[in-house]
Design a protein around this nucleic acid. Sequence first.
DNA 1: GGATATTTTGCACAAATACGCAAATTAATC
DNA 2: GATTAATTTGCGTATTTGTGCAAAATATCC
Lengths: 265, 265
Amino acid sequence: MQLFAILELYFAGKRSMMLKKERHNFIIKRINLHNKVLSSDLAEQLKVSEDTVRRDLNELADLGKLLKVHGGALSRSYHFPFNGVDIYALDAKKEVARKAAKLIKDGMNILTAGGTTVIEMVKNIPVNTKAVIFTISPLIALELADHPNIHVILIGGQFSKNSHVTVGSQVTNYLSEIRADLCFLGTNGLSAESGVTDSDLEVVQVKKAMIRAANKLVVLTISEKLNSEQRMKVCANNQINTLITELNPESKELTAYHELGINIL
Amino acid sequence: MQLFAILELYFAGKRSMMLKKERHNFIIKRINLHNKVLSSDLAEQLKVSEDTVRRDLNELADLGKLLKVHGGALSRSYHFPFNGVDIYALDAKKEVARKAAKLIKDGMNILTAGGTTVIEMVKNIPVNTKAVIFTISPLIALELADHPNIHVILIGGQFSKNSHVTVGSQVTNYLSEIRADLCFLGTNGLSAESGVTDSDLEVVQVKKAMIRAANKLVVLTISEKLNSEQRMKVCANNQINTLITELNPESKELTAYHELGINIL
DNA sequence: GGATATTTTGCACAAATACGCAAATTAATC
DNA sequence: GATTAATTTGCGTATTTGTGCAAAATATCC
């Protein structure tokens, strides 16, 4: 096959060997991004034999990082494809949600992103609360339908099939014209060094616009995601006003964030 | 980097391959959605032989995820309520939905309102359809999340707690700036004398704007609502291009609409 | 009861995998 | 830094798995 000859030539000079750990990181990223990888693709991309890729996949599967199947591997979330009933780490998320909902006071203007944690938060808002809630998540709008005194504005735009929120320039333009007291954001990655990070470019753009549109930023996350990083940066830690996890605020996992001056619940 | 472009092209052909587990998940989703699947449909949608589909169904049936029957499979919850008679019977709205979905062709710009009938219609759109769909209904946007070739634009605005769609000036303004080939409207009232009528002022305003934004208007309704009137007028009968009910087009309940020159399905 | 559609079965072929082993690489020890 | 030990990688081979095809068997529908 001709292409292989080209590849050989092309990479001949820069055949910098990749450590096993690096390959593993690469594979995990691909899984997070695409939800699936093919052994054959990985072998090409990593310039190793399919055999090696399979061994990598088996090791990662043993660690529970992915789901190995014939031909490649899938994101572990593919174990439970059943209409979203089984939300990962639901108990922790509910605890986060309970704390977060208490921040909402009558008369506020609220802005919310999507994500399972934020949706749980919305479920915990008392029915008689008076507020205006702007959201990019259809599920949140529907959730709030039976709150008679909450005025819901669903921000329109292109609907993202992955994250189930609206994204794109329509959304960011609209966000530039409003102002909210509080912005609630769930997050995929959060670390003391890099701040809030995410894996989906479109979602990152929207989250940035949301942060600009709000006076105070509240970040919700389960402790498992503390010290995790995704590929794209949403904001630095000094932009966060309040961080909510299911842990006790005095917990030692949170000291790093305490020292950054973030209010912790 | 030019080489990567070459690589992308080179491997583009392989991309459509689907892992077995992915097919299984797809089938489960379809079962949860429609309560039934046909082997022949699945074969076409998944682009594999019916043979493979049958094997998949058998494996899933062994795992207890569905109930295999001649010609396809059923949701397991349908085990009980059946007296054996017409398993494939559809209620009126589903029949309307089935007919309506056939109007959607690849490449179209579609505009849809909310309502249960329209949502049923959306469930019947083949997964591989290529189209752009504008909607004021969050539920419809969510429903279309697993149609990879449908670009969904959720029109934003104030969220109506009664009708679960977005309404208000933001919506009508936006609608004045777009143009669609087809507009699908469910209706609360329809009569030969008064045309399409509705009871919610805000929804009426939006429906009017939707009709103005589309070249052709398709009205969906169950026969029960023929000859019923609500308090507010949405449009006259001469604005309707196509009327869809669960009845046979030649049925005598429909002759009045026939005489108005409406295309009936 | 006959026509049509669906399933089963056996089989062929390709693709993916596991295994053993040798070569290459990395780590550890002096 | 050289030498040894441990790990990692690639390849050949045997095995398993996944898929499609076709004929025979079965179910379903008038």
